[in-house]
């Protein structure tokens, strides 16, 4: 099969991310899918500092910073101005982390999606506030240790389940919603291309493993990303105008393979793992049910 990943690069050497950063690959693939006529808007996030220190600038597309709480609103302004200035063909992309999307940015995101602007919103999900030192976010999964859910003697790990923003977006009726991850770049870029053909707001959640916050060796980011999909922790799907398609796993693996590869779950006991499995099954059933209903 010929390689479907465009050769053009819109991200050059010189970024300031940590070794093995999943979020840099996410941006690289997203831009490959978007092409040169793209503007990226970034709130407070790892990606606010990744573009590079003097004299490097790693992105070949313009980047517009926005306050933490305002990515959805910032892309609204950009989009509508571009339309008036005759630049309808420009892709306006909000590129925010999980904290900036699931927590502080949710109101702004929901507003932009509801108003129906022709924008992309990419949530690069590294499942905690990595830029400020690994504090829990709404998108941190059950069981994870972070600096504000320190395990210690009281086993004070995160007890709440992950808030999956992609599910919220489906519930809100956003015309294009998908999940993707860096282990499957062809799938990711195909989803960007599909999204481009949909008019209106587009939301894609990209799981972007973080060696610093998930405690695993930095060369394993892509591997961990693949394990997350194969174990069912992060199911891949695409939902276009309410028509949901869930990617089936040809080679499913045991959940423990995914959990044991990361230090943040190292404290987990059997019961905790069962809780995670229960959640995974529940969510997969929910998605499959939705898929079945949407097919009718």
């Amino acid at each position: 099969m010929p390689l479907s990943i465009p050769k053009e690069e819109f991200m050059e050497p010189g970024h300031t991310a940590c070794h093995g950063c999943g979020a840099t690959l996410s941006m690289r693939y997203v831009l490959k899918g978007m092409g040169p006529n793209t503007v990226v808007s970034v709130p407070a996030a790892c990606w606010a500092v990744i573009p590079g220190a003097i004299p490097n600038r790693t992105l070949d597309v313009p980047m517009v910073y926005t306050p933490f709480a305002a990515t959805g609103a910032a892309i609204t302004g950009l989009r509508e101005a571009f339309n008036i200035l005759g630049k309808e063909d420009y892709n306006v992309v909000g590129f925010a982390g999980d904290g900036g999307t699931a927590d502080i940015g949710l109101q702004s995101l929901s507003g932009a999606m509801e108003r129906g602007h022709n924008v992309f919103y990419i949530m690069y999900d590294n499942e905690a506030y990595m830029n400020t030192g690994v504090q829990r976010s709404g998108s941190t999964p059950y069981g994870a240790e972070t600096t504000t859910t320190p395990v210690g003697k009281d086993r004070n790990f995160k007890r709440q389940r992950k808030k999956v923003v992609a599910d919220l977006m489906m519930a809100q009726g956003v015309p294009y919603v998908a999940t993707a991850t860096i282990a499957y770049p062809e799938d990711l870029i195909r989803k960007i291309t599909n999204a481009k053909n949909v008019k209106g707001p587009k939301f894609i959640q990209i799981l972007s493993p973080c060696p610093v916050g998930w405690y695993y060796p930095s060369e394993k980011s892509v591997e961990i990303s693949r394990l997350a999909v194969q174990s069912g922790v992060f199911p891949l799907f695409e939902c276009i105008h309410g028509q949901l398609k869930v990617t089936r796993q040809s080679k499913p693996i045991r959940l423990s393979e995914y959990l044991s590869a990361q230090g943040r779950f190292s404290h987990m006991e059997e019961e905790d793992v069962r809780n995670v499995q229960e959640y995974i099954d529940e969510r997969m059933n929910f998605l499959l049910e939705l898929e079945q209903k949407s097919g009718k």
């Binding site: 400020t132 030192g133 504090q135 600096t147 504000t148 320190p150 004070n156």
Partner: peptide, 15 residues
């Protein structure tokens, strides 16, 4: 809410 340079207060009090 985490924010540099005050995050250590948040982290310390979480435990």
């Amino acid at each position: 809410y985490p924010i540099t340079p005050s995050s250590e207060i948040l982290e310390r009090l979480s435990s």
